[in-house]
């Protein structure tokens, strides 16, 4: 057994333990933290499995954004414990059947790491052998994401947009505008404020690096957007939401969120206008590879824009909610 496989199994066993604790726990905050730990551990598993982009994203999103949002929401909800009586019978039966089926199904999967597995024989070799040449992007994940399966990524962008739209719709008109400690955090410690003041520019710089370095290493518009948003959230946490809103009014955020989608879709339409298929970047420049490069750059920018602005919008929407209480 290879060391890597052993590590994977250990991490998985650890996650299972965490899940068991999660299932037993009534404390919602603990549940959120345990889920965050599972997510973080999965990021480690992804790294071991050579999926660096995924690991990066899972750490940023699963462990980061999801935990942040959950904690924020828990604060707003004013709920601490899940005291209700759990059902046991039907869930147990369903889990038994599904689990049994999955064990049956995975029993004759190709062994872990088998280079002869069917998934390794078809389609994937093309990406690995030709991806770098056809798109001029060495990070094959980026090449597949933005070009070969660029339409999926457009869809993914729309999903994020839909979520943002949904949160805005659902929480429309129910926010508070009055001064609250969370909303107006102007009384933070001076040291914290100074540190954050210095830190935020670096976070944003890092985000830009991730945005434009995605062609060559792990990263891309999605991760960059999340990190950029994290920088803004950090700023808002320290200096208060109103300060952030002065820099980035909500109307501008909404425009940016829409612009990201339009940029991505617009690149597709531009390809159509130049006689290619939707998202066929090759027609964007004289040279096909140059065109690919340009297209990938632009759509990644679109992704970054929308992800960033939707994340900040969602954070803002939750932060502005009154805490607890019933209508």
């Amino acid at each position: 057994m290879s060391v890597e496989y052993g590590l994977t199994l250990t991490l998985l066993a650890f996650m299972l333990l965490a899940a068991w604790a999660l299932a037993r726990s009534d404390d919602l905050l603990a549940a959120v933290m345990l889920a965050g730990i599972i997510s973080l551990a999965s990021a480690a598993v992804f790294t071991v499995m050579d999926a660096v982009d995924v690991a990066f994203t899972e750490a940023a999103v699963g462990a980061g954004v999801a935990t942040l949002l959950s904690v924020r929401a828990l604060g707003v909800l004013g709920e601490r414990r899940a005291a209700g009586r759990a059902r046991v019978g039907l869930p147990f039966l369903v889990v038994l059947v599904c689990g049994g089926l999955l064990l049956y199904g995975t029993a004759d999967l190709p062994a872990y790491g088998d280079p002869a597995a069917p998934a390794m024989q078809h389609v994937a070799p093309h990406y690995l052998a030709r991806g770098g040449v056809e798109t001029g992007v060495p990070n094959i994940v980026t090449a597949v994401l933005a070009s070969y399966r660029g339409f999926d990524t457009f869809g993914e962008l729309v999903v994020i947009f839909t979520a943002g739209l949904g949160v805005l719709t659902l929480l429309a008109g129910s926010g508070v505008s009055g001064a609250r400690s969370e909303v107006d955090a102007g009384d933070r410690d001076i040291i914290v404020r100074q540190v954050v003041k210095w830190l935020v520019p670096f976070v944003l710089l890092f985000a830009l690096y991730v945005q434009f370095h995605g062609d060559y290493g792990p990263g891309g518009g999605f991760q960059a957007g999340v990190i950029f948003a994290a920088g803004m959230v950090l700023y808002a946490l320290t200096f208060g939401l109103p300060r952030l809103e002065r820099v980035l009014p909500p109307s501008r955020l909404r425009l940016l969120a829409a612009t990201g989608v339009w940029l991505y879709g617009g690149v597709g339409v531009a390809c159509l206008l130049r006689g290619g298929a939707f998202l066929d970047y090759a027609v964007l420049a004289e040279d096909a590879v140059d065109g690919q490069h340009l297209g990938i750059l632009l759509v990644e920018l679109g992704v970054g824009l929308t992800v960033f602005s939707v994340m900040v919008l969602i954070y803002r929407a939750f932060t502005r909610q009154r805490h607890g209480g019933v209508e």
Binding site: V158, L165, L168, R254, G265, G266, V269, F278
Partner: peptide, 20 residues
């Protein structure tokens, strides 16, 4: 060439309008 794309892309690109 636009026909297969339009039913999906037209509403997708129009939807963000009403956010603005």
């Amino acid at each position: 060439a636009w026909l297969p794309v339009l039913p999906v892309v037209a509403p997708l690109l129009a939807a963000p309008l009403w956010l603005v």
